[in-house]
Design a protein around this nucleic acid. Structure first.
Length: 614
RNA sequence: GCCGCCUUAGCUCAGCUGGUUAGAGCAACUGUUUUGUAAACAGUAGGUCCCCGGUUCGAAUCCGGGAGGCGGCUCCA
């Protein structure tokens, strides 16, 4: 963030200087686009038979600094499009030539259905463009819309960060170029701060913390994108899922259970066969000729439970919930940590209701979402996705209109911050997406509520209405956390592994100072009482110094640790050590009788509080 | 799937351009120590240098293929 209006021009100029430096080093380089992005810039470059690596950055940066020191003036010039095209041909810049041809044809380089920012627009227009602009510094000339700063000396502080493959103009079928990323700021201080923030993000990377806190593991033998959860990680999963379930059970949802495979016939009926196509894991039966697949979603199964008996309008809404795992065969290059996996556990639910019940159902769901995001201390705002005038949508347009109004009413009833987008709806119904903001101010889309006018139809779901006619219910898909794995990937980084008491895999660690029969039994009684009260407690009786045992508890970010020795044995007063972020400021360490202490911790765990009361 | 980088002990990492028995810290184990709020001391054990193939007198090191990880692209939402 900077209030300097010059920053974009500065970054744009740096992209240009990057290209100039690359051309000095590799004269045969072909250039693509070099736009400004968040915090910096990039330039797409194709050098025949050369692969730039991070080892080359020093060399490129040195060259860039030379150009900067020379304070070369950026001179803007214009050429008619046709002249520009012959310039590109002479300069052997085929990518620029392609861009110019687009400019000539349509007045813009923005290919239809491609995103302007991604492409790095060099000009926009209404099809009447005649001249295109160039910027020249020293002996380097580049097609560019600008703006640039006055000369190469005015570009602030920068650093090349990484190089990655990127398809020319974002299309998979196009050749792949090398994208050089850099960051740039006005001052050295800002650059340093940015790099420090990056470092911080790296420190709380959920993959690193997952290992350090012993939460989840992977195995080459099991496969990519198939994480397994340790006892500690499983506590997190189950506590989150339990809360999500409780919140929905309070508003009338019932738990159901479905198997993880199905005959493909189910998805032929639902129409998902085509959509999920190559993402389906196939399961071969050796006993029958049936073809099975692992379920990539749960709704079709749930419709079978709904359809298992006749339903009256009095029975609606019928609400099912289930935390269950789906399997999607994602492309291997897209997998990473817990954020993209192939076994995805959803806190999924489906409502079958009448049209006039939609608003009420959504209102309740949003309230539940509010509760759970409050409990995990994340800010929420929502995106309402409506249909547009296009004809790719299924279902009665009148129904869409009514439903969209009901969604909006429900969002307003919950006082949620929201924005509306037309044309972002799914083909089968409008939806609400939840955007949660984490501690590093990154926004993540975690959960959605979606209306569905199509599957009830496909599956011939019905209920008998008041007048005895058969009607089709509306389906509402929702998940509060979305995928538990993805949620955890965000949440581990949000908290930096410092989980609130109700979620902490280990809530209390008892550190015994030395061995003696009296102390042993004192600690045994304490621990038994903690366990009886549902507190997750671990005892450390190892033959190590007290300091070291405390350190071990700190490293695991255990909320409470308790040193027990002669002193406690004599007085019966226990003084817990409270994890720093949980402690209420200004409160002195105080001591408690053991029943009192265990009782408080147990209460905190049950009430899902964020701060310690001890 | 595509482009690039990476893979050495349970973990974090050394190991120069191919050259003896591949190292360290932490963790583990054993012994001494019985400890008071973020790391006692000593010792022991631990390796198919990711896997398969090739080049070479000789491969952790070079080449090819595969697996896994990471950064992007494309997807996904």
């Amino acid at each position: 963030m900077s209030d300097n209006d010059n920053l974009p021009a500065m970054r744009h100029s740096l992209a240009h200087i990057t290209a100039a430096a690359v051309q000095r080093l590799w004269p045969e380089a072909k250039f693509g686009v070099g736009p400004v992005v968040k915090d910096g810039f990039y330039y797409d470059i194709d050098i025949p038979n050369v692969t730039i690596s991070t080892d080359d950055f020093a060399k490129i940066e040195t060259e860039m600094r030379k150009i900067i020191e020379e304070k070369q003036t950026f001179e803007r010039s214009e050429k008619p499009v046709d002249e520009a095209i012959s310039w590109a041909q002479d300069a052997k810049q085929p990518y620029k030539e392609e861009l110019l041809n687009d400019l000539k044809r349509s007045g813009t380089t923005v290919a239809k259905d491609l995103n302007a920012d991604e492409l790095g627009t060099i000009a926009e227009g209404d099809g009447t463009i005649e001249n295109v602009s160039f910027y020249t510094n020293g002996d380097f000339t580049d097609l560019c819309r600008g703006p640039h700063v006055g000369n190469t000396g005015e570009v602030g502080e920068f650093k090349l960060l990484r190089v990655a493959g990127a398809y020319w103009r974002g299309k998979e079928t196009n050749p792949q170029m090398q994208r050089l990323y850099g960051v740039a700021f006005d001052t050295k201080e800002e650059l340093t701060r940015y790099l420090e923030l990056q470092q911080q993000a790296k420190e709380r990377d959920h993959r690193k913390l997952g290992k350090e806190l012993d939460l989840f593991v992977t195995s080459e033998l099991v496969g990519s994108g198939l994480p397994m959860f340790t006892p500690r990680g499983t506590v997190l999963r189950e506590e989150l899922s339990r809360y999500s379930n409780e919140l929905r059970q309070q508003i009338g949802y019932e738990k159901v259970w479905i198997p993880h495979i199905t005959k493909t016939a189910l998805y032929e009926k639902s129409g998902h066969q085509a959509k999920f196509g190559d993402e389906l894991f196939l399961v071969k039966s050796q006993e029958t000729s049936d073809e099975f697949v692992l379920k990539p979603m749960n709704c079709p199964h749930h419709t079978r439970i709904y359809a298992s008996k006749p339903r009256s309008y009095r029975d609606l809404p019928v609400r099912y919930l289930e935390t269950t795992t789906v399997y999607r065969d994602e492309k291997t290059g897209e997998l990473g940590g817990l954020s993209r996996v192939r076994s995805i556990t959803q806190d999924d639910s489906h409502v079958f209701c009448r049209q006039d019940q939609i608003e009420d159902e959504i209102t309740k769901l949003l309230a539940a979402a509010n509760d759970i995001y409050k409990a995990v201390d994340m800010n929420l705002r929502v995106r309402l996705s409506y249909r547009d005038e296009g004809d790719g949508y299924l279902g009665d347009p009148e129904l869409w209109k009514v439903a969209q109004d009901q969604l909006k009413n429900a969002v307003q009833a919950n006082n949620l911050e929201y924005f509306e987008v037309e044309g972002e709806a799914a083909f089968y119904g409008p939806k609400i997406d939840f955007m949660a903001t984490d501690a590093l101010e990154r926004e993540h889309q975690l959960a959605t509520v979606q209306l569905d006018f199509v599957q009830p139809d496909r599956f011939e779901l019905e209920y008998v209405s008041e007048d005895g006619t058969k009607q089709t219910p509306v389906m509402i898909h929702s998940a509060l956390l979305g995928s538990i794995e993805r949620f955890l990937s965000v949440y581990i980084e949000h908290t930096g592994g410092k989980f609130p008491i109700w979620l902490a895999p280990e809530q209390l660690r008892v550190i015994q100072v030395k061995d003696s029969p009296e102390l042993d039994s004192f600690v045994d009684i304490l621990v038994a009482s903690a366990k009886e009260n549902g507190v997750r407690v671990v005892v450390d009786r190892s033959n190590e110094s007290v300091g070291k045992k405390i350190r071990a508890a700190e490293v695991l970010k255990v909320p409470y640790s308790l040193v027990i020795g002669e002193k406690e044995l004599e007085t019966g007063q226990l003084t817990p050590r409270v994890r720093k972020d949980l402690a209420v400021e200004g409160r002195e360490d105080s001591s408690y009788k053991s029943d009192e202490l265990i009782g408080s911790i147990a209460n905190e765990a049950r009430s899902r509080v964020q701060k310690s009361s001890l």
